[in-house]
Computed example of a mutant assay.
Amino acid sequence: MSHIGRPNESDKRSLRREFLAVRNRLTADDLRETSVALAGRALGLPELAGAGTVAAYVSVGSEPGTRALLDELHARGVRVLLPVLLPDNDVDWGRYEGESSLGRVRYGGRMVLFEPVGERLGPDAVTTADAVLLPGLAVDARGMRLGRGGGSYDRVLARLERARAHPALVVLLYDSEVVERVPAEPHDRPVHAAVTPSGVRRFGQRSD
């Protein structure tokens, strides 16, 4: 799949629809199997094996499953930070302490997220992470990530940039979502690796 040319929001919307349509055809069995495989691949990453703090997220719907990964990181004693969506689409953070530490939150009448119910640590908490696990819909050969379009993680990445923080940036995807090219803009920041159920793809060199 190739999408080359000047990026615009129409290109991104069209591409997002394509990837979401494929995800929506996945069965419950598909989701369970890929969740276990994804956790196994991610836990083998050196960036996670040596991490004291990992910023992650709770998968919902047909997203690549993160629950098994979160539980194993927590069991290892890793400080796991999870996002809390703010009214302006920015992101606060709370700590994951197991499934009982999550609350179900509905946004805008449709979107349901699972967020930590404990103490809020502030938007800058992400700058303490050794690794940041990012949601996405695709990544290309340059490491450019296609997000869902809400802009929340653009703010997270900008905050890391301002703080001169350099955690490992890892996007969690399905195998078919590693593609040749996705639309990108000058402010977009490449990830260092993509983890899929069948393997790990790395992009470029860490600058830190």
Rank of each mutant, 00 (worst) to 15 (best):
G77Y: 13
E72D: 13
A75H: 12
R164E: 15
R25I: 02
R142S: 11
D90Y: 03
L82M: 10
A42R: 00
S101A: 12
V179H: 00
E33C: 11
P190R: 11
G136F: 06
R142E: 09
P183L: 03
E177G: 06
V178N: 00
L45Y: 10
D90N: 08
R159M: 07
D30R: 13
R16W: 09
G103M: 09
E161D: 13
R95I: 10
G77C: 11
R76S: 04
R164S: 15
L157E: 02
R25T: 15
E185L: 03
A49P: 00
R76V: 07
V126E: 01
A125R: 13
A168Q: 03
A28S: 15
T53Y: 06
E47A: 15
E47C: 02
D29W: 12
H187Q: 02
P197M: 05
F19Y: 14
D188I: 00
Y107Q: 03
A68C: 09
V178S: 06
L82R: 07
A39T: 10
V191Y: 05
G151N: 06
S14Y: 08
R189Y: 00
G118V: 08
G199K: 10
S14Q: 14
Y174A: 04
V139C: 10
N24D: 15
A141Q: 01
L82A: 11
V54T: 09
S152L: 07
G94H: 00
W93C: 01
S207Y: 03
L113S: 01
L173F: 11
S62D: 15
L137A: 07
G94D: 03
